[in-house]
């Protein structure tokens, strides 16, 4: 167990969901919500708490696309690539954002931990296609230019907040 890791947050989450194997997914969701990813330190700890193997929890965490084992950026940008968004040209948006942020299919988070860029299969907002979300806020009828602009303003917002 990692001594430097503060487990009090995790303890609260585990107790809130119940120390049982059927709570694993909701516990992982809450942990991810807090840390924006699943820190490695929580795995042996959670395995002990709900009495399953660490490998089983790793299995659950890797099965669902939604869980991330890597730290995510402050802004999680999800470009919808469902059918409707795809035919209304979501890929050029994705490509523009990747080139703006220096990301790729494999590298999804910027080194400054500001942006994470993902695709998602249908947000259920097809009437607004093409759509992207930033930390669950929906931006409708996006174009590559609008997306670039959005990223730029988010970066400024972050800089201001830091300053």
């Amino acid at each position: 167990m990692n001594r430097e890791f503060d487990y009090s947050v995790v303890d609260g989450i585990i107790d809130g969901n119940g120390r049982k194997i059927s709570s694993v997914i909701s516990i992982l969701q809450d942990i991810q919500e807090h840390y924006r990813y699943l820190p490695r330190e929580i795995f042996p700890y959670l395995a002990d708490a709900v009495a399953v193997s660490e490998a089983r929890i790793y299995s659950v965490a890797t099965f669902y696309e939604n869980f991330s084992l890597e730290p995510k950026g402050l802004y999680v940008v999800k470009v919808c690539d469902g059918t409707a968004c795809h035919v209304r040209r979501s890929i050029p948006i994705l490509n523009r954002l990747r080139s703006d942020l220096g990301l790729s299919e494999r590298k999804v988070t910027t080194d400054d931990l500001l942006f994470t860029l993902e695709t998602v299969s249908c947000l259920g907002a097809c009437g607004l296609a093409p759509v992207l979300t930033v930390n669950d806020k929906v931006y409708p009828a996006v174009t590559p230019d609008k997306a670039s602009q959005l990223v730029k303003s988010l970066r400024e917002e972050a800089t201001h907040a830091a300053a």
Partner: peptide
């Protein structure tokens, strides 16, 4: 896991990426 209660390995990832893996 069932006979030995050790659980050193389990499935990881899904679909065509699925493997048998230890934690991490």
């Amino acid at each position: 896991s069932e006979i030995q209660n050790v659980g050193a390995v389990d499935f990881a990832y899904r679909g065509s990426k699925m493997t048998i893996s230890t934690a991490f």
